[in-house]
């Protein structure tokens, strides 16, 4: 087993004391390409937010030495904001240029790699859903981080864009980057993601995709509606009082 780019140790993250991720332990190997799958409310997005440092764990530790690029669900952005595509993408260089230094980045090349060469001067409000996601991937290219977290990158995206962006993800993996993506498209996971984490608050299974996505587990996943217990017991696992 190669060393972990991200390792989780007894990680619990909760909202209003209800755990969304519950005592999760494991690691994403450096250079791995992992899909995170699970039913609604299974804690997939929460896990990514916690790794990205946007949510504080209630318990446990997340260790990640490398810089992280995090792509939230598209719903979290104001798509009508008056900014040009090129300026939006250029912000990817933030960790190197910050808020004040001159932006010396090749925005054109990044837009070229996602097929948006001629869109640099357009406002982001004029882009279609697929184009918008391509633009956000161009920003990820400029972030050039060794660890990339993608939250439902292909939700409501056309097949051609998915194929183009998957090629980009493949290139990232070939370049040694660690990629973790929350996905609902199981066929895509089987076809393109070597590793899978099946999450239902706890890790149901974590390993090579074929071994994880067994028919029995998928059936169990479809059956399970994640319950929200109004009168839960206090968890005593992992030494918590």
């Amino acid at each position: 087993m190669s060393r972990s780019a991200i390792s989780l140790e007894n990680l619990t993250v909760s909202y209003d004391r209800h755990p969304a991720v519950h005592h999760l332990t494991g690691g994403f190997a450096a250079g791995s390409l992992t899909a995170v799958v699970g039913p609604n409310g299974a804690g997939k997005s929460t896990l990514l937010k916690a790794i990205a440092g946007l949510l504080k764990p209630d318990e446990g530790r997340i260790a990640c030495g490398a810089e992280i690029a995090y792509l939230p669900q598209v719903a979290e952005i104001d798509r009508e904001f008056p900014i040009a595509v090129a300026d939006f993408v250029a912000a990817g260089a933030w960790s190197r240029c910050g808020g004040f230094r001159a932006l010396r980045v090749d925005v054109g090349a990044a837009l070229g790699r996602v097929g948006l060469e001629s869109f640099a001067a357009r406002g982001i409000g004029t882009l279609s859903g697929g184009q918008f996601q391509r633009m956000r991937f161009a920003r990820l290219i400029l972030q050039d981080a060794p660890v990339i977290l993608l939250d439902e990158p292909f939700a409501a995206i056309d097949a051609r864009t998915v194929a183009d962006l998957m090629r980009l993800i493949g290139a990232w993996q070939a370049a040694g980057k660690t990629v973790v993506a929350v996905l609902h498209e199981l066929d895509l996971v089987r076809a393109a993601f070597p590793e899978t984490l099946l999450l239902m608050r706890e890790a149901v299974a974590w390993g090579p995709t074929r071994a994880v996505l067994t028919p029995e587990r998928l059936a169990a996943m479809r059956e399970s509606a994640m319950r929200f217990d109004d009168d839960p017991e206090i968890c005593t696992l992992g030494g918590a009082a």
Binding site: L54, A69, E76, I77, D78, I83, F88, A91
Partner: peptide, 11 residues
């Protein structure tokens, strides 16, 4: 424009 992005890059 994108507050979550800014937080994720530590701005």
């Amino acid at each position: 424009c994108d507050p979550v992005f800014l937080r994720s890059v530590g701005g």
